[in-house]
């Protein structure tokens, strides 16, 4: 039982990761692919934060009378990764907009067909 509670977080995170991965590789719509990429990204964030947690620990803000803090280093890495993530996501979305303007579609199959029919 302890083993299951101790590893439940990791398994759900892996499930979410694989859900995102499946969306990326199985769907042809570019917007949906980007949503899948974001799900993958958030699940990686969750993996890091899961590793930083300490039982009974407080948030890493030093205050009197608190001895036990969670690990601040993964928080720092993920904090910056989230903002970089939204910037790169918006770059992907901008590419989707340009693809729509050039090809008239955002379905991968149709883009391939248009490319081969040239």
């Amino acid at each position: 039982m302890d083993f299951i509670i101790g590893h439940y977080n990791y398994w759900v995170v892996i499930f979410l990761m694989m859900a995102g991965f499946y969306t990326i590789i199985s769907r042809g719509n570019l917007v949906k692919k980007i949503v899948g990429l974001n799900i993958f990204q958030v699940s990686v964030f969750m993996l890091y934060i899961t590793m930083s947690t300490v039982h009974g620990g407080a948030a890493p803000i030093i205050s009197e009378g608190v001895e036990n803090y969670s690990n601040p280093l993964p928080h720092v890495l993920i904090l910056t990764a989230i903002v970089v993530g939204v910037a790169t996501t918006s770059l992907g979305l901008a590419l989707v907009v340009r693809i729509k303007e050039a090809y008239g579609t955002i379905e991968e199959d149709e883009i391939h067909e248009l490319d081969h029919s040239l």
């Binding site: 917007v31 974001n38 958030v42 993920i78 989230i82 979305l93």
Partner: peptide, 29 residues
């Protein structure tokens, strides 16, 4: 999981800005 700073950022970025940008893409495509 006691990561307040991260939760803060995720709530503002993921729920706010990214959704708005994705909806803008949807409107454009």
């Amino acid at each position: 999981m006691d990561a307040i700073d991260v939760a803060f950022t995720e709530a503002a970025v993921g729920t706010g800005v990214s959704t708005v940008l994705m909806l803008a893409t949807l409107a454009l495509t």
